[in-house]
Amino acid sequence: MTQSLVPISLLVLSNVFMTFAWYGHLKSFKESALWVAILVSWGIAFFEYVLQVPANRIGYNHFTLPQLKIMQEVITMVVFAGFSVLYMKQSLKLDFLWAGLCLIGAVYFIFRSP
């Protein structure tokens, strides 16, 4: 694995934890007390930060700060789309595709100049 793929991989894993921390309770803990959902979400978010902080530290050696941010947003949308379909059983609408194309445009513009 090349050094530039390490932060990307860590960001993907971080986003999986983040997405479950933010939205997983809507399915898994909807009958639980709010404080239970909050504590479980905080516990999951801990692992997000364990991965996200090193991802950004390592990534900053290979990418600019704006490049890291745009990568994070694209990864977030891809992970969220998978989470929505696979875990929450939601269908993706055409507007999600248009939003994704806008993000691809953002990637192009942020990476096109050195």
Rank of each mutant, 00 (worst) to 15 (best):
M1A: 13
Q3E: 09
Q3N: 07
V6K: 12
I8L: 14
S9I: 15
L11P: 05
L11V: 04
V12T: 08
F17G: 03
M18T: 01
F20A: 13
A21C: 10
Y23S: 15
H25F: 11
S28I: 10
K30G: 01
S32M: 08
I38E: 05
I38G: 02
V40Q: 01
S41R: 06
I44A: 07
A45D: 09
Y49N: 14
Y49C: 03
L51K: 05
V53Q: 05
V53W: 12
P54E: 08
P54G: 07
N56A: 01
N56P: 01
R57N: 14
I58D: 02
G59T: 03
T64I: 05
T64F: 01
Q67S: 06
Q67L: 05
I70S: 09
E73V: 15
V74K: 00
I75Q: 03
M77F: 14
V78P: 08
V78D: 01
V78M: 13
V79R: 00
V79G: 04
A81M: 13
G82C: 07
G82L: 08
S84N: 09
L86H: 07
Y87D: 03
K89T: 10
K89I: 04
L97T: 12
W98D: 00
L101S: 05
F109L: 15
F111E: 01
R112L: 07
